[in-house]
């Protein structure tokens, strides 16, 4: 048996090797194409203004002009925007951490009539396009005087995000029901089971949710664009867009600012890559 399979594998070996070699070359080419935009951003961020108008444009700056970074963070109140964005991001993370695991527990380890129906309702709400709720919510928040505050950006997250609830629920389902049932027989209350048994077991999933929310708050554009008026209140994404609409030719500064905006995310991603990929996998596959 074994030898048969072995020799069969041996005969086709070269075609397999050839395909793999072609794949490798293709992947290398694609990787280079994927990296080049970053490289161009980085190199532009170090060029002098006159070099931007060169034809054909060279990849490398004549001298590394680190000054651009200093200029970029002083042209716009960069650190103020970073601080604002951080405040919104932290508030949002707190919101989803309080609401989403709680709801996911109610949708997984407690058996109650109507649960599965409401869960389907929740999944269907993911399909609702944002513009449908955008206008009435804007009117509502305007009426209670929340325009130009961070409340419309943060508060809704304390009421759960269907996508994260779904992700956490899928994760909670991997914890055997016997475990929570045993705790119930021992007389533990539901809040206690949730707090002392489920939550400590689901730290990786919680980390994934934190990451997703960080990414979404950090990059969010439409939300802050709608609700923030004073430039003092702007987030970094809106600030960058404003800067672009006022100085749309100063790409050396725009690229420096974009680099500062992007690098923290890439560093964080690199540190927690595995959790992140697992999170995507969990929702992407179980969603089928």
């Amino acid at each position: 048996m074994l030898t048969k399979a072995d020799s069969a594998a041996h005969e086709v070996d070269w075609t397999v090797l050839l395909t793999r070699f072609i794949f490798l070359i293709t992947l290398l080419t694609i990787s280079v194409l994927f990296i080049l935009p970053f490289f161009w951003m980085l190199m532009t961020s170090l060029k002098a203004p006159v070099e931007l108008m060169k034809w054909p444009p060279g990849w490398f700056p004549d001298t590394f002009r680190w000054q651009n970074y200093e200029d970029a963070v002083t042209y716009i109140p960069f650190f103020r925007y970073v601080g604002n964005t951080m405040a919104i991001t932290l508030g949002s993370i707190l919101g989803v951490l309080i609401s989403c695991p709680m709801v996911a527990y109610g949708f997984s380890h407690i058996d109650w009539p109507g649960r599965d129906f409401l869960f389907v309702v929740m999944l269907m709400t993911i399909m609702i396009p944002f513009p449908v709720t955008m206008i009435p919510l804007y009117v509502l928040f305007a009426r209670i005087g929340w325009i130009n505050t961070y409340l419309p950006l943060v508060l809704p997250l304390f009421f759960g995000v269907p996508f994260y609830i779904f992700l956490l629920r899928q994760f909670f389902m991997t914890i055997p029901g016997e475990l929570t049932d045993a705790a119930r027989i021992d007389g533990a209350s539901e809040p206690r089971i949730y707090w002392q048994l489920i939550l400590p077991l689901t730290k990786p999933a919680l980390a994934t949710v934190v990451l997703f929310q960080f990414l979404s708050s950090w990059s969010d554009f439409l939300g802050p664009l709608l609700y923030l008026r004073d430039s003092d209140m702007f987030t970094i994404a809106v600030g960058l867009q404003m800067f672009h609409s006022e100085h749309d030719t100063e790409f050396h500064l725009l690229m420096a600012a974009s680099t500062i905006l992007t690098v923290p995310i890439i560093v964080i991603f690199y540190l927690v890559q595995r959790t992140f990929i697992q999170g995507i996998t969990l929702t992407g596959l179980q969603g089928t």
Binding site: M41, L215, A237, I265, F269
Partner: peptide, 20 residues
């Protein structure tokens, strides 16, 4: 990793990068 990292770029930065 190389293929995934571009998805992390905030849309505003991505748009400006593409323009350039």
């Amino acid at each position: 990793t190389i293929i995934f990292v571009p998805t992390l770029v905030p849309s505003v930065a991505l748009a400006i990068m593409w323009l350039w």
